[in-house]
Simulated assay, not measured.
Amino acid sequence: MSGALRVERHAAYVLATLDRPERRNAIDQATIDDLHALCDELEAAPATLVLTGAGGVFAGGADIAQLRERRAADALRGINATAFARVHALPMPVIAAIEGFALGGGAELAFAADIRIASPTLRLGNPEPGLGILAAAGATWRLPEIAGHAVAADLLLTARIVDADEALRLGIVSRVVDDPLAEAVATAERIATLDAQAVRATKRALAAPRDQHPRVDCEEQAVLFESPGKERRMTEFLERPSKAARASAEANR
């Protein structure tokens, strides 16, 4: 990896930090290359991914100096869109811990996450039309899915920036906390206590188009019903003493 993305591997999750604080973590080609390399790893060995940014900023946008030089052929390659699509499609959950600016491509990378946790300093939006382009790396389809068409149209057509409170009210982020990275790590650790096969199946079901439900849910459940994890976890649950029984046993000692 180039170093634009700093990766730390933990037992319960992988932490990836956008690490160009001198450029507000602007997403350049090196960042995209590093994201692809990380996706190669996480597609082969699934783990929950926590995404964050260095220096109190998630990502101030795509690297404008590089964008200015790109032409039609570059747009048709979908440079950022392809990388963000791979992030979104990773087998295990992706959690974005967002502080400060998440603008342009930074917002679109955040939209690619399954769970978005923000700090009160959040400033999120897509100012691309002010630069003569559109938000083409996920905002026009993911933001309507996240917050609805009316919200997406309001934000994308006006290039309006929202703060943490409005992002929470609009459903763009699910939580606003003082330390989003600590909250994201705690969330990843909670996910690690669950059955990984069931988590992956749930993510696939969430991603399925509406017209595939409930068939896709039943097919995923059919596989889980035959899994060793389901048998073991349900057996442990049934054999666990109830709180009332434990309290009674303690009282009778």
Rank of each mutant, 00 (worst) to 15 (best):
residue 2 S to H: 11
residue 3 G to K: 04
residue 12 A to N: 10
residue 13 Y to P: 06
residue 15 L to D: 08
residue 17 T to D: 06
residue 19 D to I: 00
residue 21 P to A: 05
residue 24 R to N: 05
residue 27 I to N: 04
residue 27 I to R: 01
residue 28 D to T: 09
residue 28 D to A: 12
residue 28 D to G: 12
residue 31 T to K: 07
residue 34 D to W: 03
residue 36 H to D: 12
residue 37 A to I: 04
residue 40 D to T: 11
residue 42 L to G: 04
residue 43 E to L: 05
residue 47 A to I: 02
residue 49 L to H: 02
residue 49 L to W: 02
residue 50 V to H: 02
residue 51 L to I: 03
residue 54 A to H: 04
residue 55 G to L: 05
residue 56 G to H: 00
residue 56 G to T: 03
residue 62 A to N: 04
residue 64 I to P: 02
residue 67 L to A: 13
residue 69 E to N: 12
residue 73 A to K: 08
residue 76 L to C: 03
residue 79 I to N: 04
residue 79 I to W: 02
residue 81 A to D: 15
residue 82 T to K: 04
residue 84 F to A: 09
residue 85 A to W: 03
residue 87 V to L: 07
residue 88 H to D: 12
residue 90 L to A: 01
residue 91 P to R: 02
residue 92 M to E: 07
residue 93 P to E: 04
residue 96 A to Q: 01
residue 97 A to Q: 00
residue 98 I to K: 08
residue 98 I to D: 06
residue 100 G to E: 03
residue 101 F to P: 00
residue 102 A to H: 10
residue 103 L to F: 05
residue 104 G to I: 01
residue 108 E to L: 03
residue 109 L to P: 01
residue 110 A to Q: 03
residue 110 A to F: 01
residue 110 A to Y: 00
residue 115 I to F: 05
residue 115 I to W: 09
residue 123 R to C: 08
residue 125 G to R: 00
residue 125 G to W: 00
residue 127 P to Y: 07
residue 129 P to S: 06
residue 129 P to L: 08
residue 131 L to E: 08
residue 133 I to M: 14
residue 133 I to R: 13
residue 133 I to Y: 12
residue 133 I to L: 14
residue 135 A to M: 00
residue 136 A to K: 09
residue 140 T to R: 09
residue 140 T to C: 08
residue 143 L to A: 13
residue 144 P to L: 09
residue 145 E to V: 00
residue 146 I to L: 11
residue 146 I to R: 15
residue 148 G to L: 08
residue 151 V to Y: 11
residue 155 L to F: 07
residue 155 L to K: 02
residue 156 L to N: 13
residue 166 E to H: 10
residue 168 L to E: 14
residue 171 G to L: 07
residue 174 S to R: 15
residue 175 R to D: 15
residue 177 V to R: 14
residue 179 D to L: 13
residue 180 P to M: 06
residue 182 A to P: 06
residue 182 A to N: 12
residue 182 A to D: 15
residue 188 A to K: 10
residue 188 A to M: 14
residue 192 A to S: 14
residue 199 V to W: 01
residue 199 V to F: 03
residue 200 R to H: 07
residue 201 A to Q: 01
residue 203 K to A: 01
residue 204 R to N: 10
residue 208 A to S: 12
residue 208 A to E: 05
residue 210 R to E: 14
residue 211 D to I: 08
residue 211 D to H: 14
residue 211 D to C: 11
residue 211 D to R: 14
residue 211 D to Y: 14
residue 211 D to A: 15
residue 212 Q to N: 13
residue 213 H to F: 03
residue 213 H to W: 10
residue 214 P to A: 03
residue 215 R to D: 14
residue 215 R to A: 15
residue 217 D to W: 07
residue 218 C to P: 00
residue 220 E to F: 04
residue 220 E to I: 06
residue 222 A to K: 07
residue 222 A to T: 07
residue 223 V to M: 09
residue 224 L to N: 03
residue 224 L to D: 00
residue 226 E to T: 09
residue 228 P to S: 13
residue 230 K to I: 07
residue 230 K to G: 00
residue 230 K to N: 12
residue 233 R to K: 13
residue 233 R to S: 10
residue 237 F to C: 11
residue 238 L to R: 15
residue 240 R to Q: 15
residue 241 P to G: 02
residue 242 S to Q: 13
residue 243 K to F: 15
residue 244 A to G: 05
residue 244 A to N: 06
residue 252 N to S: 15
residue 252 N to M: 12
residue 253 R to C: 06
